Amino acid sequence: MNLAILYRGPLASCNYDCPYCPFAKRRDPPELLRADRAALARFAGWVAATGDVRLSVLFTPWGEGLTRNWYRDAMVSLSHLPHVERVVIQTNLAARVDWLADADPRAVALWSTYHPGQVDRDRFLSRCARLTELGVRYSVGVVGLPEHLAEARALRAALPAEVYLWVNAAEGRRYDAAEEATWTELDPLFGYSARPHVSLDRPCHAGETAISVRGDGTVRRCHFIDEPIGNLYDGSWRTALRPRPCGNAVCDCHIGYVHLKPLGLRDVFAGGVLERIPAAWPPVRRPVPLAAPERRPPAVPAPGSPPA
């Protein structure tokens, strides 16, 4: 069995104050941080003990996890487990990344987001460069707001070609054809994010080969369907896994619609579904054929000249 787990504990604090995020600059009280740490330790212990399943884990905290040492420690330890194919976290890269030198680069990866106005671009790029030095897989993304366009272009120009830059449609924003084309120049797959996907009654991998897990172990099909289907720690999740059609009218978040079967995005992101890296990245660019040399007629010798 291969199972992808999207884990979200109680943590909801962040060191950034992005105006488009409801959790900006939120501070968690000490008791909530203790609860989050304990929940993550329990989850990591469960992953370590569940060796009969090939697991991939994506941490999707409401806030920023890598400023907390327990997330860093969990990622390092889980990356070395033989039955863990991938361990990934969504992060703003605010924290130093040298700790990843202790992780297995074959298993660990980062889904990184650049927030203009919250961090200096050169500082963000220095973290990206360090990830490259460490051999850690990572993607980088931005929110597709007009005021971010110049920074996004500068970021794309500065990043290595092998690093995928994704663009998330801003929540509630509609993009006209010209705007969509502009962002697609940066992210060839932006069209998938630019508009919600009709999902009602459509088949989805969620609840079959991908699940969402809360800090208390409650298992749901995905983050966007509240109905529980079992609990991680009593084993009820195993019998709950089966194909199901989606019960929501639309799906407009990448971590949800990437699992919609009709979209085929599991193939597009094969080998990098959780860290949001397409299989064919960087794109293969066909070489421009050289123009054939001009064919000139053979010279005609002048009358009376010796043969060549």
Rank of each mutant, 00 (worst) to 15 (best):
M1P: 08
M1C: 11
I5N: 08
I5P: 07
P10R: 12
L11Q: 00
S13P: 04
N15V: 09
D17E: 14
D17R: 08
P22M: 14
K25P: 04
K25Q: 14
R27I: 12
P30E: 11
P30F: 07
E31V: 04
D36W: 02
A41L: 12
A44T: 15
A44D: 06
A48G: 11
A49I: 06
V53N: 03
R54C: 12
L55V: 07
V57S: 08
F59K: 07
G63V: 01
E64A: 01
T67A: 15
N69M: 14
Y71C: 04
Y71H: 13
R72M: 09
R72S: 11
A74H: 01
M75P: 04
S77K: 05
S79L: 12
H80Q: 13
L81S: 02
P82D: 11
E85P: 03
R86Q: 13
V87G: 02
I89P: 04
I89Y: 05
T91P: 08
W99K: 08
L100M: 09
L100K: 04
L100P: 03
A103D: 05
D104M: 05
P105E: 05
A107N: 04
A107L: 06
A109W: 05
S112D: 02
Y114M: 01
Y114I: 12
P116C: 11
Q118R: 14
L125H: 09
C128N: 05
R130L: 00
R130F: 01
L131S: 12
T132L: 10
E133V: 09
G135Y: 06
G135T: 10
G135Q: 10
R137T: 13
V140D: 03
G141F: 03
V142W: 13
G144V: 11
L145A: 11
E147S: 09
L149T: 00
E151F: 03
A152K: 06
L155K: 06
A157H: 08
A157D: 04
L159M: 06
E162L: 00
V163N: 02
A170L: 03
A170R: 13
A170T: 03
Y175G: 00
Y175W: 01
E180P: 09
E180G: 12
A181Q: 14
T182N: 04
T184D: 07
T184A: 15
L186P: 00
L189M: 02
G191K: 08
A194T: 01
L200S: 07
E208W: 10
T209A: 13
A210T: 09
A210P: 01
I211N: 02
T218R: 07
V219N: 00
R221C: 06
H223M: 09
F224A: 02
P228K: 02
P228R: 03
L232F: 09
D234S: 02
W237C: 02
T239P: 04
A240W: 00
A240C: 07
L241K: 00
L241Y: 13
H254S: 14
H254C: 04
I255Q: 08
H259R: 13
H259L: 10
H259Q: 15
K261W: 06
P262W: 12
V268R: 15
F269L: 07
V273K: 12
R276C: 12
I277M: 09
A279P: 03
A279E: 12
W281V: 07
P282S: 10
V284Y: 01
P287T: 12
P287L: 03
V288C: 15
P289R: 13
P289I: 05
A292T: 13
E294R: 15
E294D: 05
P297T: 14
P297V: 10
P298A: 08
V300Q: 14
P303S: 09
S305H: 06
P307L: 03
A308S: 15
